[in-house]
Computed example of a mutant assay.
Amino acid sequence: MGPEGTFTEQALRSLPEAGGSSLLAAATAAQALAHVWRGAAEAAMLPVHNTVAGPVPDTLRALVESPAPVVVREVVLDVEFALLVRPGTPLSRVRTVSGHPHAGTQVRRWLSSHVPHARWIAAPSNAEGARRVKDGECDAAVAGLFAAARYGLEAAGTGIQDSSGAATRFLLCAHRGAARIPVPGCAHRTSLIGRFPSRSDQLTVHLQKLKKHPFLQEVSLNVVHDGPDSRLLLADCPGRMDRPETARAVGLLQLSLPGLRSLGSYASAHHVMSPSERSRIMTGKATAEADVSVEPAPGDVTRLREKIDALDQSLIGALQQRLTASKEIQRLRMGDGGARIDSGREHAIRDRYTQTLGDGGGAVADAVLEMCRGQASR
């Protein structure tokens, strides 16, 4: 996605199978998938959703228009932005800022406060925005800090995103029949994509009714505009198609929405990489092989404890991000006059923990939910 230095490149490099592979750049999601169909690439990594900016329309459009793509793997990265400029450029001289539209959505308040007179110029990728700054076409770019060194730029501001804890979800897509990438002990997801005519909000109303169905209460439905008379829908169902609950949900969706086609079942992301981890990947200080855990030998208590310590640290980091996200959601709900707690959603979350972890999962869910409520109320 764009020249070197994008979050999509980071997502791709985080996978073990990327080590030693030739990486082929593409300006758009459609071009990336076209490389796959022509046989120039085995798979394409595409950004599909951001927790702040929502679905990525270009990716959804490319998935709908491409011949039967399937998802073989998912990656989630937490996202932090910097304002990159040519060395010595003060903020007072920034008149144009470039970057991907999703990045612009996530830094709008910061830009309005720090460079209020700057004009936003959309780019196919944040790295393309950085290239434009390097070549003198723009004054500044919104991109990852890691892109600065690649384009001879410096940061006029770091951590400029308006909301902390934002994360972007990426899908590794291939042609139908491609092998899935096994991720032991990982949860799974089944996704569907479709385009539907819509002259008003009838699709939204229909989806709201569907969400009340007991088979679909845990299904995520994301709709984006695709012109004045068309909508794109991405549906994510928990579990694989060999799980009865998932098969029922998929069947009901396809029955209710003819034209909704499956992107397959795949391992869902179990780890959100930190900025320091991403930096090691992009600077070559960590190899793809380092991301593959080595199972300790039976009876090796020390190594097992080290593995548990590492897992605990990952859990703590994930819980910290959950606290931040919960606090922001509850602030927005209360600002709109709603209740701080959504009991229906909490019930669904508890059921998810119980289904995945057994009876003890309910207690874990109760502890997590209680912790997040307490954080939000302080």
Results as ranks from 00 to 15, higher is better:
Arg340Gln: 03
Arg350Cys: 04
Ser113Leu: 12
His270Phe: 08
Val71Cys: 12
Ala18Asp: 03
Ser230Asn: 14
Asp342Met: 04
Leu357Phe: 12
Trp120Asp: 01
Cys173Trp: 06
Glu218His: 09
Leu192Glu: 01
Ile308Tyr: 07
Ala267Leu: 07
Arg248Leu: 12
Ala187Thr: 13
Ala140Gly: 06
Leu111Cys: 06
Asp300Asn: 15
Thr324Asn: 05
Leu77Ala: 08
Gln106Arg: 06
Glu277Ala: 15
Leu255Phe: 11
Pro228Leu: 13
Tyr151Ile: 09
Asp201His: 12
Thr302Arg: 14
Thr89Gln: 07
Ala148His: 09
Trp120Asn: 06
Gln355Val: 00
Ala148Ile: 10
Glu346Arg: 07
Ala43Cys: 12
Asp351Ile: 03
Gly360Leu: 05
Thr287Lys: 14
Gly157Phe: 10
Ser200Asp: 15
Gly227Cys: 10
Thr246Met: 05
Ala166Thr: 13
Val301Ile: 14
Gln254Tyr: 06
Glu9His: 10
Lys134Asp: 07
His114Tyr: 06
Ala127Cys: 07
Ser112His: 12
Gly152Thr: 11
Ala34Val: 00
Asp135Cys: 00
Leu369Thr: 03
Phe81Leu: 10
Leu252Gln: 07
Gly99Thr: 04
Ser265Cys: 08
Pro69Ala: 04
Ala247Pro: 05
Gly337Pro: 03
Gln313His: 11
Thr168His: 07
Leu234Ile: 05
Pro124Gln: 08
Asp78Phe: 01
Cys186Arg: 15
His102Gln: 12
Ser66Asp: 12
Ala166Val: 14
Leu12Trp: 03
Leu15Asp: 04
Arg73Lys: 13
Thr287Cys: 09
Phe81Asp: 07
Glu80Cys: 02
Ala32Cys: 09
Gly19Glu: 15
Asp162Thr: 11
Met282Gln: 07
Ala247Leu: 08
Val79Ala: 00
Leu203Pro: 02
Gly20Arg: 08
Glu154Val: 15
Asp236Lys: 14
Leu210Asn: 09
Ala62Leu: 08
Leu255Lys: 13
Ala247Thr: 01
Arg278Met: 15
Val183Met: 10
Asp291Leu: 12
Ala130Leu: 08
Asp162Asn: 11
Arg280Ile: 01
Glu218Met: 13
Ile160Gly: 02
Ala130Tyr: 06
